[in-house]
Design a protein around this nucleic acid. Structure first.
Lengths: 345, 345
DNA sequence: TTGTATGCGTTATCAT
DNA sequence: ATGATAACGCATACAA
């Protein structure tokens, strides 16, 4: 009586067949109410639990979703929460693996999850990832897959992303409207589309306002506070230094802020600053940093919804590309002209 | 040829038996090298992958670990990273479920993971959890389980926790040594041992230095910035207000800081402040906040190690209680007497 | 309404 | 060195 009870045990004790027990369990229509009652009673008594492993095996489906993320920072953790929310609703459970922004680790993890009984993938690639063979392998294995956040056109899969260009545009145009003239950008790694798109938006805003982009003001560096710190130091050491900086992440904005403070400059008088992500920290530092917010929770939910749809629709959904709009939150770090309808908060 | 190949297919095509193929695959000793070569070649060609689902089914083990956490904040995400690290090493994959500090959600999640083919649990209970039946059910199901971070004596399971009392003691004694006299504590929810232990340490430090504890200075409130903000406002409104506050989380410290600033008081002159967790944010705000650091990554690794041991040792390990030491990082918010060997950073 | 038999992919036991 | 067969727990097509 140590081993968990199976329908076999119930059948034997009740002197009926396994199939009858199976049917009774699943409320099949054609089963004698009395039989069902007996089965239910005994299964209760034996503490019967259906063996999901056997079920999954038979049905070739675990109802598990593999989620691969580059890390679990504030924004991504929020997205994962959104994914989990919808997955739970749909009867799926989520397995999260962090690649730590490492290409090698990402490969290990996809392999791991491929082996680990998932029905499919929801994935955001690492910043190192430039080759996508390991991910295409998922698709070759007939596994449904949704790409989120760090969307790339290199993969033919349904995706949910942010309108990063719009985010970059909003941030930059805001700075322009506040009277900043020489606006630098700390862009991220070159191979990430979210970097490029945000920079695209930056360039678009400049163009719209007839400001000639200056290559010296465009810095590519890692999504990293320390790199941003150094990069900003260099920017501030220029003879014609920028009067504003747009960083494509808040971590980088913090790094920039530290460099600005170290140099003894003040925001927004000497230097304007706008970040990206709207993490809680940006409203806690002084001055509070303006930032572009992503609807992270919504984005996660959308990704999971797409995944569920992909599972149910057998048709090809690789053309589906959802794009969510970001929203700029203006704070002290970039606000020279107080607004009448104070978006400040 | 759409369906993934199985050993059966290989056997048929090679005109040998299934068992031979199976043996060849697993490098069994008693198989003809030529046969093996043929098998390997064909399995390569057919892109054969062993069906893990079938394996798990047969072996009654998925090599998946269910991890239940109250949320994925900085500290816990770091712990999860530690768990993942060790799990990967040992050939396990982690399924993370967030309870969102909700008792009901925690029950749903344990249920979900119990159903979801995990071999066991690594769990940190929600702050709402006062009844542990759902968790005991795990143990009744013969599932190995390790409790981490929020350890409770209500559960008889191996555990890894922090020496929270020591953390509370370090923080409080530091404040005392800095000359603070009326030290308040924002303690967390009463049912969490981590709250009680940190408060215990607070009381111990007071006692050691012959300071009589004042019940008005002991506030229980949620692990929450807003609650801490309100609680601090009330503290500061007292006729004999405290001259220092120890909050048992950094979130709460931020809330306290905002209330202190709002009141126009300065740290550490008017009010000293020490938090707990040493999240990155505390060194970014101004003044930087002193905080007690948990070895979160190590703690996660330890939890996973314990889990693996529990799986391998069949013996009862419920008596094992690992306890890790925290470390105080002193910053401006509490530093009245500059130290010669500057622990400041 | 109930029972029998088969199969899912693999390993293991027992033959040969 | 290799093959036949049972077994894991469950669902289901078919037979009764």
């Amino acid at each position: 009586m140590d081993r968990p009870a199976t329908i076999k045990d119930i059948a034997r004790q009740l002197n009926i067949s396994i199939s009858t027990v199976s049917r009774a369990m699943r409320n099949a229509p054609d089963v004698n109410p009395e039989t069902r009652k007996a089965v239910m009673a005994l299964s209760e008594e034996l503490n019967y639990l259906p063996n999901k492993l056997a079920l999954s095996f038979k049905q070739r489906s675990t109802h598990n979703i593999g989620v691969i993320v580059p890390n679990l920072d504030y924004v991504i953790a929020t997205m994962v929460k959104g994914i989990d929310e919808v997955a739970l609703e749909a009867g799926y459970t989520v397995m999260v693996c962090q690649s730590n922004e490492s290409f090698g680790r990402e490969i290990v993890n996809t392999r791991r999850l491929l082996d680990s009984l998932v029905d499919g993938f929801i994935i955001s690639v690492s910043s190192e990832t430039k080759v996508f063979d390991h991910i295409r392998k998922i698709q070759e294995n007939h596994m449904p897959m949704v790409v989120f956040d760090r969307v790339t056109s290199a993969l033919s899969a349904p995706s949910v992303g942010l309108d990063n260009m719009d985010g970059g545009f909003q941030a930059t145009e805001h700075l322009i409207e506040q009277g900043f003239k020489r606006i630098a950008i700390l862009a991220g790694p070159k191979n990430l589309s979210i970097s490029n798109d945000r920079m695209e938006g930056y360039l678009k805003a400049l163009k719209k306002h007839r400001i000639k982009p200056d290559n010296d003001l465009i810095i590519h560096c890692d999504f990293n506070q320390d790199y941003a710190f150094v990069a900003t130091q260099e920017l501030l050491a220029m003879k014609k230094r920028p009067d504003a900086i747009f960083t494509i992440s808040d971590r980088m904005a913090i790094g920039a802020m530290l460099a600005i403070k170290q140099k003894g400059l003040s925001m927004p008088q000497d230097i304007g600053l706008v970040g990206f992500n709207n993490e809680p920290v940006v409203s806690l530092v002084s001055p509070a940093i303006s930032s572009v917010e992503q609807p992270a929770f919504e984005l996660g939910k959308m990704a999971a919804k797409l995944f569920i749809e992909t599972i149910h629709n057998n048709g090809d959904m690789s053309h589906v590309r959802e794009v969510l709009k970001p929203k700029l939150y203006v704070r002290e770090s970039s606000l020279r002209i107080p607004e009448k309808n104070g978006r400040l908060r």
